[in-house]
């Protein structure tokens, strides 16, 4: 079974080598700009930036497509709802739905905007190892420590969660198979019956996870982990000239996108 949710594509392109924090800031800035600007021209500027970044990343199209495909229906749904429910002078009516040029234009704009957002976001997740991304976010979240938000602990939790997702999926599959071997059926009957059918699957999975949490905590303590300690990292975050360039270029793109 496919047991990885991370879409990270290991590589050594210039985009890969950029610092996770710089990439995150760049993507966040572009995302905000994308939502502030509501013209096709602005969209075109941001889209070209996304395409160029993706091109530099060297990620194969097939890989990108695999990560992107599940989001396609979301974009499609956005298009449809906007098309059907946007106000405007109808040129065509059917049942309770009115189709208008304004609606079509609006729907196209919104779905394209979503498309560009996904593209730009994907460049970040495709070229940044989840661990580096988590570390980067923890670093960016440091000011929150003053508010007693335990950012480093949260980052470690996210890392551990990511590490165990594939394991959990395999275990889920095994338990479902085992219960099917004992005659259980999933996905048939009404919602209540379906929910009930999941008890023999979710109960063992929870128990397993609780036991795991216990054993994992012990193993972490055995390797000198304590909440609140200051840790170093094997792969420290390192920002350099290319990252400064990235931020400068991002600023230029934002200005261009907002002014065209």
């Amino acid at each position: 079974m496919k047991a990885s949710i991370a879409q990270y594509y290991p590589g050594d392109s210039i985009v890969h080598r950029l610092d996770a924090r710089a990439k995150f800031v760049a993507v966040a800035t572009l995302a905000v700009a994308l939502f502030v600007r509501d013209s096709f021209a602005g969209l075109a500027v941001f889209a070209s930036a996304g395409v160029v970044a993706y091109g530099l990343s060297g990620v194969p199209v097939a890989w990108f497509w695999r990560a992107f495909r599940p989001l396609l229906w979301l974009i499609g749904l956005t298009f449809l709802t906007q098309l059907l429910f946007a106000p405007g002078e109808p040129f065509f009516s059917w049942w309770i739905f009115d189709f208008s040029w304004e609606g079509l234009q609006f729907a196209a704009f919104l779905s394209l905007r979503l498309l560009v957002l996904v593209l730009i976001g994907s460049v970040l997740t495709l070229t940044t190892a989840p661990l580096a991304l988590t570390d980067g976010l923890a670093w960016l979240g440091r000011p929150l420590r003053r508010l007693r938000v335990p950012t480093d602990e949260l980052a470690l939790m996210v890392t551990i969660a990511l590490r165990f997702i594939p394991t959990l999926l395999v275990e889920l599959d095994q338990i479902m198979r085992a219960q099917r071997a004992r005659g259980a059926e999933f996905g048939s009957g009404g919602p209540i019956r379906r929910a009930k059918a999941l008890v023999p699957v979710l109960t063992p999975l929870f128990v397993l996870s609780f036991r795991r949490a216990d054993e994992l905590a012990l193993a972490m303590e055995a390797r000198c982990y304590q909440p609140g300690i200051v840790r170093t990292r094997l792969h420290p975050l390192r920002a350099g000239m290319p990252d400064a360039v990235l931020l400068a270029v991002t600023a230029a793109i934002v200005v261009a996108g907002l002014l065209v």
């Binding site: 275990e171 338990i175 085992a178 004992r182 005659g183 259980a184 023999p200 699957v201 063992p204």
Partner: peptide
């Protein structure tokens, strides 16, 4: 790892009941 019921007897009964 598949045991889930609240008593041993109920867990063993799961399969034959499903039949």
């Amino acid at each position: 790892l598949q045991l889930f019921a609240t008593s041993a007897r109920e867990d063993v009964a799961f399969g034959p009941r499903r039949l």
